[in-house]
Every structure is written in C-alpha cells, then in structure tokens.
Amino acid sequence: MTSFPNEPTPAMASPAELRALIESRRAVRRFTPEPVPDAVIRDCLELAVLAPNSCNLQPWSFQVIRDPALLAQLHPVCMSQNAARAPLIIAVLARPDTWRQACRNVIEQWPEAEVPARIRRFYSKTAPFQYNQGPLGLLGLFKRQLVRLMALRKPLMRKPNSKADMRLWAVKSTALAAQNLMLAFQSHGYATCPMEGFDEVRLRRVLDIPRQAIPIMLLAVGRQGEKSVYNPRLRFPLEQQVIWR
C-alpha cells in the first residue's frame, strides 16, 4: 500500500535456484525422529506470514506441535498414516473470524510514525463494512442485494458477502502462507507432507481449536526417512490446464 523508495531492492533467487527449490519439494511420508530446531521453525513461520493475503488482514494462525505425548494423540486422528509420525506437526488454520482485530492491528502497528489518512479510513470504515456479515449473515444478505443493484452501473467486487464467502476468503490467503511454509522448510533441508486426511472433530478436541477456525492442513515436518516418497511425480501437461488468450 505504501512504497518505500529508499529501501534497497532485496536480493532475489535466480530462476534456476527457485526452480531447484520447488522441484525438490515432495510430499514425504516417512521421517527420522530427529527434532526440528526451534530457530528453524520460527524462521519458516516468519517466511510463511510474508505470503500475500487479502487486504493484509492475515487471516491465519498456526499451532506448532512438538510434544511427544500430543503427537502420539494426533497419530490416530490423522488416520494413523505414516506421515503423522513426524517429529513436528504444524496445524495450519484459516481464520475468517479475526478480521476485526486485524483491522485494528493494521492501524495500531503501522510501520510509520503517522498512519496515512486513507489507510486509517479503509481499516476503520471500508474494511469493517466489507467483511462484516452481521448476525445470522443478515448484513451479508443486504449487501448482496445492494451489490446487484449497484453493479448494474459499474463493475464491483461482489464478495465476500456471506459466511461461506468469508470461509473461502480466509482459506485462500492461508493456503498461500502454507506454500511459503513448505518451501521455507525445504530450504532448510527439512521435508514436509501436507496432510488433509484427519478427523476434524477429534482434531478440534485434541488441539482445542477455536470454533470458527478452519483447519486446512496438518503439516508434517522433519528429516526425510527411507522409502519416504511413495510414487514418481506426475503432473498433467500444461496444455490440458492452461488457456492462452
């Protein structure tokens, strides 16, 4: 939102380096018991939250599970799959419920001495109206009708205007952070496996996940073990999935 012309341009990885990092990442199903150092975990989480996200409201949270007893409880919750025996599991949660506090945080934690008027106005008025769906979603219903009328005259952003829209809104940004997180661990030499195979009801009990938070994956992390990549990589040809216009 605000440019900083005096800041040096950060060093960038070459295309070859980036390709090598991305190509080296595989879903690893078996890990050694070697623990992941806290400094590495923190560094990777710091890189995760640098991911682009909607209106900089950062609708995500993470639970870092290292305790052996808690990891043992998670194993059956994750359908007893091999990847769930990793020495580290990070629960990646989308948070459609944190936008109010995030709006306040942007203003309170703005990285300049003065908060620009347009920033203060957006996060104190525009964003709260945009993301508030009201009790039982009634405000969202009203906004949907309002948008339909206003869009007859000009293009408008039509979502999020429902509870379901807010869930999708949060999941999209959180998925970007999760990809950053996996690549960050890969750069440190640690393998990962994003697990979607888990019992969400039991997961919420074990980890005491807030009611409105959405567990989008459990990320297993550790040193790669033997026979840990089950199959060769398969990606469909770009021609099947890309349209050039």
Rank of each mutant, 00 (worst) to 15 (best):
L176F: 02
L176C: 03
A177W: 00
A177H: 01
A177K: 00
A178T: 05
A178E: 05
A178H: 03
A178D: 05
Q179S: 11
Q179G: 03
N180F: 00
N180P: 00
N180T: 01
N180G: 00
L181I: 04
L181H: 01
L181E: 02
L181K: 00
L181M: 03
M182S: 09
M182D: 03
M182V: 04
L183M: 08
L183Q: 01
L183Y: 00
A184I: 06
A184K: 02
A184C: 11
A184L: 12
F185E: 04
Q186R: 15
Q186W: 07
Q186V: 13
Q186T: 14
S187L: 09
H188V: 13
G189M: 14
G189F: 11
G189W: 05
G189V: 14
Y190M: 12
Y190H: 08
Y190C: 13
A191L: 13
A191C: 11
A191V: 12
T192N: 12
T192Y: 06
T192P: 07
T192M: 11
C193I: 06
C193G: 11
C193H: 09
P194W: 03
P194V: 14
P194G: 15
M195D: 01
M195K: 00
M195E: 01
E196G: 15
E196T: 14
E196A: 15
G197P: 08
G197D: 07
G197Q: 06
F198I: 03
F198P: 02
F198G: 00
D199E: 10
D199P: 06
D199Y: 11
D199G: 02
D199W: 07
D199R: 11
E200T: 09
E200Q: 09
V201Q: 12
V201C: 10
V201K: 13
R202H: 12
R202W: 08
R202S: 11
R202N: 12
R202F: 08
L203P: 08
L203T: 03
L203E: 05
R204T: 07
R204M: 11
R205E: 08
R205F: 02
V206K: 01
D208Q: 12
D208P: 04
D208R: 11
I209C: 14
I209Q: 06
I209M: 09
I209E: 05
I209G: 03
P210K: 06
P210G: 14
P210V: 04
P210A: 15
P210Y: 04
R211K: 15
R211D: 10
Q212H: 09
Q212P: 09
Q212L: 15
Q212F: 12
A213G: 10
I214N: 04
I214M: 09
P215T: 08
I216G: 11
I216K: 04
I216H: 06
I216M: 09
M217L: 14
M217P: 08
L218M: 02
L218Q: 01
L218D: 01
L218I: 01
L219E: 01
L219K: 01
L219R: 02
A220G: 02
A220N: 04
A220R: 06
V221Y: 10
V221R: 05
G222V: 08
G222E: 04
G222K: 04
G222Y: 07
R223W: 05
R223E: 06
R223S: 15
Q224G: 14
Q224R: 15
Q224H: 10
Q224C: 14
G225P: 10
G225D: 03
G225E: 05
G225Q: 06
E226G: 15
K227H: 13
K227M: 13
K227G: 15
K227Y: 06
S228E: 06
S228F: 12
S228R: 10
S228I: 09
S228L: 14
